[in-house]
Simulated scan of single mutants.
Amino acid sequence: MSVVKESFGRTNDGQAVDAFIFENANGMKAKVINYGATIVSIETPDRAGQPADLVCGFDDMAGYQSEANPYFGACCGRYANRIAKGKFTLDGVEYSLAINNGPNGLHGGTVGFDKKVWDAAMVGDSVKMTLISPDGEEGYPGTLKVELTYSLNDEGELRLDYSATTDQKTILNLTNHSYFNLAGADSGSVHDQIICINADRYTEVDDDATPSGRLLPVAGTEMDLTSPTPIGQRIGEVQGRGYDHNYCLNKKAEGELSLAAVVTDPASGRAMECWTTEPGVQFYAANWVENVVGKGGAIYNIQESFCLEAQHYPDSPNHPDFPSTELAPGETYTQTTIYKFGVEG
């Protein structure tokens, strides 16, 4: 294993941004930057040994700071996914957030964690990124300290270990928002790639993606991905433009690190597993990505990539029956998510 640090340019307000490049013994490379704690690239070989970059992104800081950026590769927070009407109540106090996705608050607000320059340091073969979010930022209570450590091993596992503490009771839901295409990020539709998600239920939402509070069974519906299914097989039957739903993962115990999803690409032979301690995974088929100019001039479009966003359920603060996203002083938030890459056949 090796990690190399290099410059990735500067933000519009002059802050230096660094890139960290991981490489393992089997030809896999990953690059992350400390702007948004973002995964910029993941290169892995196919069954013939030919490498390709599997994640959508940009060549430079101009792209990552542009309005065209749909959270490519970023850490989303303080609250990933949606909060209905941008409001929640904590210990009898109502808090108001930015409305930035239809009628809802999304991914932490106008300037969420994805738009912050994190402190970063190499620690052995890993990179630890740290962010302080002050009390009241984007409407959230409490000063929050977040750590996210990236590491890569020779088994093809890109591991994300999160932790956080607060000085005042708050809510927290973090995720990585990488857009994957196992044929290569610029390879077009992912409809023929095969997905299996270890979830018997999903979170019902209305047409504004606002959760109703009901967890519905997937069995017998277009939402059933419990057995290997081409992404495009029933996507036309799915609510809205296609898959953009939280799947409630089957867990033997709360906080268990378990297999959430497997995706394979029959053409290249590449396979990806998502493992997580989180209770849910948002499967999103890039339904709103249209004519985004990315790395090397590639044009990314609808359903030409997919996201597996390991996280808590959307709008959990407004649904007491959902797993809690509250964090109090003296407690430590932890999460581990692993994206594991290899080949089959």
Rank of each mutant, 00 (worst) to 15 (best):
V123F: 04
V123Q: 14
V127P: 04
K128T: 13
L131P: 02
I132F: 00
S133C: 12
D135N: 14
G136Y: 12
E138I: 10
Y140A: 00
P141E: 02
P141D: 00
P141R: 15
G142Y: 03
G142K: 09
G142T: 01
T143M: 00
L144R: 01
L144D: 07
K145H: 15
V146P: 01
V146E: 07
E147Y: 06
E147L: 05
E147S: 03
T149I: 13
S151K: 06
N153L: 05
N153I: 01
D154M: 10
E155I: 00
G156I: 05
R159P: 00
L160N: 09
L160A: 03
Y162Q: 00
S163M: 05
A164M: 06
A164N: 04
T165G: 07
D167K: 07
K169G: 01
K169N: 00
T170N: 05
L172Y: 02
L172P: 01
N173G: 09
L174P: 02
T175E: 11
H177P: 02
S178Q: 07
F180S: 08
F180Q: 13
N181G: 06
N181H: 06
L182F: 03
L182G: 13
A183K: 15
A183T: 09
G184D: 14
G184F: 06
G188S: 08
V190M: 03
H191W: 11
D192N: 11
Q193T: 05
I194A: 10
I194G: 12
I195W: 04
C196V: 06
I197H: 09
N198S: 15
T203K: 04
T203C: 14
E204A: 11
V205E: 10
D206F: 08
D208H: 09
P211E: 01
G213F: 02
R214G: 01
L215I: 11
L215M: 08
P217W: 06
T221W: 09
E222Y: 00
M223I: 11
M223K: 08
L225A: 05
T226Q: 08
P228V: 04
P230V: 11
I231E: 10
I231P: 07
I231Q: 02
G232R: 10
G232K: 11
Q233A: 15
I235L: 14
G236R: 04
V238I: 15
Q239T: 08
R241D: 07
G242T: 09
Y243Q: 05
D244T: 11
C248S: 01
C248L: 12
A253K: 15
A253R: 15
G255P: 04
G255H: 13
E256M: 13
E256Q: 12
L257G: 07
L257V: 03
L257I: 14
L257N: 12
S258A: 12
A260P: 03
A261K: 07
A261W: 05
V262S: 11
V263G: 04
P266D: 13
A267Y: 07
